[in-house]
Simulated scan of single mutants.
Amino acid sequence: MTKYDLIATSAMGLEALVAKEVRSLGYECEVENSRITFKGDEKAIAKSNLWLRTADRIKLKVGEFKATSFDELFERTKALPWENFLPENAEFPVSGKSVKSKLFSVSDCQAIVKKAIVERMKHHYKRVGWFEENGPLFKIEVGLHKDVVLLTIDTSGSGLHKRGYRTGQGEAPIKETLGAALVLLTNWTPNRPFVDPFCGSGTLPIEAALIGQNIAPGFNREFVSEGWNWMDTKVWDEVRIEAEDLANYDQPLDITGSDIDHRLVKTAEENAFEAGLGELINFKQMRVQDFTTSKEYGVIVGNPPYGERLGEKSAVQQMYREMGQAFAKLDTWSIYMLTSDEEFEMVYGKKATKKRKLFNGFIRTDYYQYWGKRPPRDK
């Protein structure tokens, strides 16, 4: 099978986590800012799309070169073997971005790349006229950074955060990829209780359940590369059957999501049922301040309100204060909170064991980690 240069893109701060996932699939990789590069065949394209929980999307690298003039961009794009990827009837829109480069006009770069590919294809397919573009979709991106051009084809289609289970959402839903990352950055194991006291539309509990039963996050959706003529449908079938065999549906889970808003609790329940996890997760309406439990060695993960809007901060900080008081008794529990409030530790009433800088969309946040006592080892 042909080996391709593949790129798993990632949110800032999650690169190491994506790299760990890529390696766990059996591929060596290199880590750069917001991208993890690895080599793999058609099966690697299918597996990485189906299994990577924290990556944004999987791109196929066609070429990379330096270009400081439009002529150079045209000639070097035209020199690449586009016919290896694009059939004669391919629909291939070109998007682009340019950062700190002499060729700063994105629309011009897109037009030139498109023209160069058309010229290459005309020569290869011995065509005189225009291409109809009524076949499978190949989304091409031209990215310029400090005069280095990277040309890629998107293999995912919709971003990988679109798992296919979200029937509804709240005002500021956390992306599923970040939700999975927040779970993977904890010390939670499927045999321990998991609680999200700010569950919103249910993303964190659902992602925890998918992780707990080792269910591939892309199992319920389709990918644009499934329609490509050189991606054998047998490969996709094989990878899906493998994923089905690897899922541990018998793993019992103790996962609870709660929220102050009863409408969101209902949405979370609907989303969990859509994901096929409705029976596994317990959702209820509750204020975080009222949380009590007799269970031990559990994990609490939350993405509480940040108080970003004017006038909200004092109310949010009061809630943090009361939450700190409610959680103070839970000495065997580990607690993880994501917020942009830099005064969180002071208001919560305790210094974090560790904190990690992450981005929730464009908001710079810290992931505050409070580690509880270790559970006794099973004899």
Rank of each mutant, 00 (worst) to 15 (best):
Y306S: 08
T353D: 15
V113F: 03
N282I: 04
D245I: 15
N229C: 14
S48M: 11
Y4V: 05
G129C: 12
E296C: 10
V239H: 03
E132G: 10
D237F: 08
M337D: 02
P197C: 08
I206G: 01
E312D: 14
G372S: 14
F131N: 06
K78S: 09
F38T: 02
A326Y: 05
G276C: 08
Q318V: 07
M121N: 05
F223Y: 06
R163C: 00
P193S: 10
S69M: 11
P375L: 14
H262L: 09
L151I: 04
S34N: 10
M346A: 14
T37P: 00
K175Y: 03
L277I: 11
K329R: 15
T353G: 14
V94H: 00
R374N: 15
G170F: 06
T9S: 10
D261L: 05
L185V: 11
S334F: 14
N33M: 08
T292E: 11
N89G: 05
E222I: 09
V299Y: 07
E119T: 13
A19T: 07
E308N: 11
V301K: 04
E72T: 07
D259F: 01
H145W: 07
K379G: 12
L182C: 07
P136M: 02
A180G: 12
K43E: 13
S225C: 12
S225T: 06
G349N: 12
L17Y: 03
T155S: 06
L280P: 00
S98L: 09
W82K: 03
D232S: 14
S340G: 12
A272R: 01
L182G: 01
T77A: 05
F344V: 11
D237K: 13
A315M: 11
P173A: 09
K114S: 12
E296Y: 08
G307P: 03
L330Q: 09
A247W: 07
D41N: 15
S48P: 04
L150H: 01
K234W: 04
R120W: 07
I281Q: 06
R23G: 11
T256A: 08
S314V: 14
R166K: 07
W130Q: 13
S201L: 01
E21Q: 11
Y297M: 12
P197G: 08
W228P: 00
I281W: 04
R321I: 09
A90D: 03
